[in-house]
Amino acid sequence: MLFLQILANGLVLGGLYACIAAGFSLVWGVLNVINILHGSFIVLGGYLAFFGYTQYGIHPFVSIAIAAPLFFALGYVLQRTLINRMIAAPVLLTLTLTFGLDLMLANGMLAAFTADFRKLILDPPLGILRLGALVLPIDRIIAMLLALGLTGLLYLTLSRSRMGRAIVAVRMDREAAALMGVNVKHVYALTFGLGALMAGASGPLLAMIFPISPLTGPVYLGKAFVICVLGGLGSVPGAMIGGITLGIVESFGSLWFGPEHATTLSFVLLIAILLMRPEGLLGRKGYA
């Protein structure tokens, strides 16, 4: 029974992780940019939900709808003004650039909100669902479902909408897309905007489950890396598979090695996979 409970915990966690990683993976896959800011975007989204709820009584689920357009705009502007200029530069430079941006955002949050860990506690609480011996907090389940919903929406956006098809086209072959009249810079900015949106929108969900602090940004970033390596780059289903795998691995890892080693375990897993498959577990060679 313990096994089932841990598995259920892992699946809940995994759903959230998929949502964290989907936007990160999209940006990496399409722009070939590792967005170090991603973790801080998530935290900022968390703060938005926290203050929205404690100050104005806005329910975290509603905050998602507020966060989404804000973060999309933020991401779009960042890409259009700064990152687009460096898009063709070597890996090292784009990494350093987003790292610098992240230092600014993380330090800004630290100055504004302090390093204290804050917990968003719903009042009244949503309660607990019991399925036989399984114990599942309802807020977690809803958060997971919303996370999966958001991830699904991203998938639909990419596969069905005009914007999504332009993004996919640019990812496949930038030159050809440009020749067919796609404004590549605009598409890049849209992509980065979508990535930021996913991060910002998953913030409120995570805030309901984990304490918020500027210090947790790098933790989420690390998870996004691992998920991308597990699931492959630039595809939403890949992020889904990678996220759920990581959720389950962390769940069982906490059980077997202690929760304090869950992150280390996932990093060791990351390096092990990279050593066996230098392009990631489901990665494809030679695109970008």
Binding site: R85, M86, T96, L97, F99, M104, L105, A106, N107, G108
Partner: peptide
């Protein structure tokens, strides 16, 4: 002093750009 790393970040961004 308080936003030291933030300004460092800005510095890095300016350098790279």
């Amino acid at each position: 002093l308080e936003v030291h790393t933030g300004v460092l970040g800005l510095l890095i961004v300016l350098l790279v750009m």
